[in-house]
Nucleic acid binder design. Structure first.
Lengths: 343, 343
DNA sequence: TTGTATGCGTTATCAC
DNA sequence: GTGATAACGCATACAA
């Protein structure tokens, strides 16, 4: 940018106002101990010259860049884009920018991206989930950089967090199905490697099922990437089992959408012949037919709190090491007793 | 960050390698005219010391920050988050970071955000659509900053663009309905102020309808914010018209989802009693029941090309002023002849 | 091909 | 309270 354009510099403002550059800097940064008179002179000069501070120079001298980094698996998942959207809006209130990097669920790429963001000079960073390579932690400590994880609720001295319990609501969903009379329950899950949220949900499902004295055999669990089409594919696979499962626990709403659509296409009535659950409570889950039984995750709230907390950490304030928000099961119309309830 | 930690500096590397700081810098920046021998010495020293360049200092000295800015109305729209996702991944290949700002469809806020991003030192920026305040253009010119608009195809010497025609496919959708025999067509549109895409689509709808000798009265157009719930609300309003419209043209897929869900809830069969169209072709549109007739917008392709083009501009290469990609109408199952076709 | 020296635009540490 | 001035860490014109 402006490789040859002569910008207005702090020095110009100082000359215009008849004060020192230090004073101009003080006024601009709301430093204490500045007289009203000086402040007015400087502000007038700034206005007259249309001065705009040079962010990079400021960053070099102050060692703060005015931006944080967010590392997310993907923005293709509405639940993450919603979180990022709310995070960015809140950061703006603190006059803080957002640098984004995605890593397609590859923890190695996460670390690489983190490294470049740190090199870029970010003042802090937020990661999704609890699963990370040790190298990530090392980077934060090495650079004494404020950081935060979110979207999970695991207690861990190394990883401060703002999130919610993924296992408990999953457990409740499975219990709900069991209470309805389901005995043949299948699961569609995202790959659990490097994804503690998926792992926790699967664990919740399994724990509830086995606690009820039922089984969750391996062939009743389909692991598949995130996506509507993938949900449909997994559905097809599970419907080939005999006896056919009467209920499907899906690791997230989008997988559930795929399953529901595939069921409709196959002429399988939901919830009469098959119950389906999701996780996330995307807007659409409330409106689709049948409305989806799922878990409401507080994406916006997480975004806001992450902004508040990370900014506080950057300013050196102490904040809670762990904040657990509520993720509530929402019972709707996609779950009902199995066809032959009462057997 | 590392407020007191003593980092390894370029100077340390130079000393370790027994060369000058300039030489180290040259090796690190892949400058021409460096001997193999020197390169090896420097690289070895870098490895030994674990040296990582300081991004901010580099930015100040080189006047390039290694990041571009993207200004989007919202990330809550999957079509934008998909574009940003693909943009970010492509930029990574160029070793370029992404700064994001959202402006909730307020052009004034767009300019404000642009100003702070420029102050932040971005090397270039991309905006969505063709509608912007003159102040935005002025900022780009003033700072001699490479920039680009996308998601539209308007010819304009001021605004280089990578996008697609929004009006023509909209026109085709309306024609398709008319060809099917529809005579009472209604429209759900996003607010057109500051949103040339919505305006172009509405224009396409209207032009086709009026060209066919039909009317599109004001009460057949509902303007409403983006969202599933909003689509449902608009649907309810339009269904109160008499005679009831037999077809609904929606400005985007999400509004169409809302309409379809509301119709299902109201017991109105799609497409037998009512035809519905969207615009965007989100993944779900292909899988939902009935599959949605819509327009496939090349979100990923736009993201990739924007990255390629903007990086080229930053490097001083000349690129096409305007790239028009294809946005194709996709006929599916949500459109059919009206109930009383043949009247 | 390599080294020297200066500039990049602020902030922050001293004195006064 | 205010003003000099030395960092901040690297890139680059210029010299060698």
């Amino acid at each position: 940018m402006n490789r040859d354009v002569k910008r207005t510099l702090l020095e110009d403002v100082a000359r215009e106002a008849g004060v020192s550059t230090a004073s101009v800097s003080r006024v601009l940064n709301a430093a204490p101990h500045v007289s009203e008179r000086l402040r007015h002179k400087v502000e007038a000069a700034v206005d007259r010259l249309g001065y705009v501070p040079h962010g990079t120079a400021r960053a070099l001298a102050s060692r703060r860049i005015g931006a944080i980094g967010a590392l997310v698996p993907t923005l293709d998942n509405p639940v993450f884009s919603a979180m990022i959207d709310s995070l960015e809006r809140r950061l703006k209130q603190y006059d803080c920018r957002l640098l984004i990097a995605t890593y397609r669920y590859s923890l190695a790429e996460e670390v690489e991206s983190l490294r470049t963001l740190i090199q870029q000079g970010i003042d802090g960073a937020v990661l999704i989930g609890h699963d990370h390579l040790p190298a990530a932690l090392q980077l934060f400590q090495q650079h004494e950089l404020p950081y935060l994880t979110c979207w999970h609720s695991q207690e861990d001295p190394d990883w401060p967090s703002i999130g919610f319990d993924n296992a408990a609501p999953a457990h409740q969903l499975a219990e709900h199905l069991i209470d309805l009379g389901h005995r043949h329950i299948a699961v569609i899950t995202a790959p659990v490697e490097g994804n503690d949220r998926a792992r926790a949900r699967l664990h919740g499902f399994r724990h509830a099922i086995e606690t009820a004295g039922l089984a969750l055999p391996d062939d009743h669990i389909v692991t598949i990437d995130y996506g509507i089409e993938e949900g449909a594919t997994a559905f097809a696979e599970l419907m080939r089992l005999t006896p056919r499962p009467t209920a499907l626990l899906c690791g997230n709403d989008v997988l559930a959408f795929g399953a529901v659509f595939a069921a409709q296409r196959a002429g399988i009535a939901i919830p009469e012949q098959l119950s389906v659950t999701g996780f996330d409570d995307l807007t659409q889950s409330r409106f689709m037919q049948p409305a989806l039984t799922t878990v409401a995750t507080p994406a916006d709230e997480v975004g806001r709190r992450v902004a508040d907390d990370l900014v506080a950490r950057i300013q050196g304030r102490t904040t809670p090491h762990r904040q657990v928000l509520e993720a509530r099961v929402v019972l709707r119309d996609s779950t009902a007793p199995p066809p032959s309830a009462g057997d």
